[in-house]
Amino acid sequence: MTNLTPGFTQFFSGTELQNMASLYHPGWVSHGVVVSTAPELAIVIEALFLNKILSPALIEQMLSPAHVLGKYPVFDKLAYGLGLFIDLDSCYGKVSGHTGEGPGYSVAAFHFPNLVGSRITIATIANQDKPDRGLMIAYRTVQFLVDYGCL
């Protein structure tokens, strides 16, 4: 557990922030927690959408919504495909990826096929668990890139 970046949570105490790295190792079970770095996660998500991991036919199946859930804080029309969250009505094309959370961490990795004419993959890892924190950071980053003409 000494290789983990400190992740802070109130999960175990209920009130004060504790470094969960000494209390809980997220690698013991996969329930939405990624034991990785943001650059590694971005590389995997980008490779997925460049068809370097799965065939285009399988990616298309993953991007076919199994459930349409509707409006969600940053999604215009949130849907869920085979292992992917999908924003069906995004102005950036069919945005897709996933989030993960667990004690001490919040993660998001999303592929934007048309972010002001560019294909962009963004991965964020926050070391404090708050619902959708990684997701909100990813989308704020996108908004910053668009607003300030960084692309």
Rank of each mutant, 00 (worst) to 15 (best):
S30R: 07
H31D: 11
H31N: 13
G32C: 06
V33H: 00
V33M: 14
V34K: 09
V35K: 03
V35D: 03
S36V: 06
S36A: 15
A38K: 05
A38F: 10
P39C: 07
P39V: 11
L41E: 09
L41I: 13
A42W: 08
I43Q: 15
I43D: 15
V44A: 15
V44K: 07
I45G: 12
A47H: 09
A47F: 02
L48W: 02
L50F: 02
N51A: 03
N51E: 09
N51Y: 08
K52L: 11
K52D: 03
I53T: 06
I53Q: 00
L54V: 15
S55A: 14
S55G: 05
I59M: 04
I59F: 01
E60M: 00
E60Y: 00
Q61I: 11
Q61V: 12
M62Q: 14
M62C: 13
S64Y: 03
S64C: 03
A66T: 13
A66V: 15
H67L: 11
H67R: 14
V68P: 02
L69K: 11
G70N: 09
G70A: 10
G70Q: 06
G70P: 12
K71T: 14
V74L: 05
V74C: 01
F75A: 15
D76W: 01
L78Y: 10
A79R: 04
A79N: 06
G81F: 04
L82D: 06
L82W: 09
I86G: 03
I86E: 04
I86C: 06
L88M: 14
D89S: 14
D89Y: 03
C91N: 11
C91Y: 02
C91G: 06
C91V: 14
G93Y: 11
G93S: 09
